[in-house]
Every structure is written in structure tokens, then in C-alpha cells.
């Protein structure tokens, strides 16, 4: 036993999720703040999926697809809200705003895209999935 310091063999002590929650958080922060869309989207996908995974594993939730969709919805709303702040007041020039994104719009779009992708993944999982994990 002394060959393996720190080993405690009394109960289960492993989970794959914390590493990816942390990695997802780090990537999304870097991606969003530096305005790098691929990193932001991938980071938020990883964060949303890992948070769902860790909640399921800890037994706080039973329906993973619903949680994933909810998280996706929150991100989509946050992103859309950020884009909305840049639409000129009194107009509905959403298309123009999105077509030529400034710093805030680009970032908002990244968050919103990731949110929509999470919702889509949840919907697909619900339809295709064989069982509630």
C-alpha cells in the first residue's frame, strides 16, 4: 500500500467529469473574452455537456436531455441578449447587426450558437437515445 501513497480503497473515488468541467470553463472564458468563435463554441459545448454529466453522476438530476436543453436554452438566451444590446434602439435591424458583427455581437453570437447546438444535441438525444442514461 505504501507503494501507492494516497490510495484509499474504502469507497468509490473517481469521476471523469471534473476535468472536463474545468477545461470547458477555461475554453469558454478564453474564447468569449478574446472573441475567438470556434474556441468559445467548443468550450461552451464541453462545459454544458460536462455539467450535465456531473449533475447526472451525482444524482442531482435523472433526465440528462432535459438538463442539457435547459443549459443550452440559458446560453442561447444570454447570447441573444448580448446581441440584442447592440441592435440600434427603435429599429429591428437584427440582420444588419448580425451580418457585420462588432465585438459584442460576435461574442454574443458565439454563446448563442453554442446554446442552440446544446439544445439540438438534447433534442437529438431524446429522439435517438435508447434509454435515459
Amino acid at each position: 500500500m505504501s507503494e501507492q501513497p494516497g490510495v484509499s480503497d474504502e469507497y468509490r473515488m473517481a469521476s471523469p467529469w471534473p476535468l472536463f468541467v474545468a477545461l470547458g470553463f477555461a475554453l469558454s472564458e478564453v474564447g468569449v473574452f478574446l472573441g475567438v468563435l470556434p474556441v468559445a463554441v467548443a468550450g461552451i459545448l464541453l462545459l454544458g455537456a460536462s455539467v450535465t454529466g456531473i449533475l447526472r453522476e451525482s444524482g442531482y438530476v435523472s433526465d440528462v436531455w432535459r438538463v442539457l436543453a435547459a443549459l443550452g436554452g440559458v446560453f442561447a438566451l444570454l447570447g441573444a441578449g448580448l446581441v440584442a444590446t447592440q441592435v440600434p434602439p427603435g429599429s429591428l435591424a437584427i440582420v444588419e447587426t448580425v451580418a457585420a458583427p462588432n465585438g459584442a455581437v460576435g461574442r454574443g453570437l458565439a454563446v448563442a450558437i453554442a446554446g442552440v447546438m446544446l439544445v439540438a444535441a438534447a433534442a437529438t438525444g431524446r429522439v435517438v437515445g435508447t434509454a435515459r442514461l
Binding site: 469521476s15 471534473p18 474545468a22 470553463f25 477555461a26 475554453l27 451525482s58
Partner: peptide, 15 residues
């Protein structure tokens, strides 16, 4: 919270 404990550690290497 053992899992939060692990998350807290794994935030450090990217940091």
C-alpha cells in the same frame, strides 16, 4: 463536495 474539489484543482493547470 469531492467533485467540486476536483474541478477546483483542474482549473489551475489551464490558469
Amino acid at each position: 463536495f469531492p467533485r467540486i474539489n476536483a474541478i477546483a484543482f483542474w482549473l489551475l493547470p489551464p490558469g
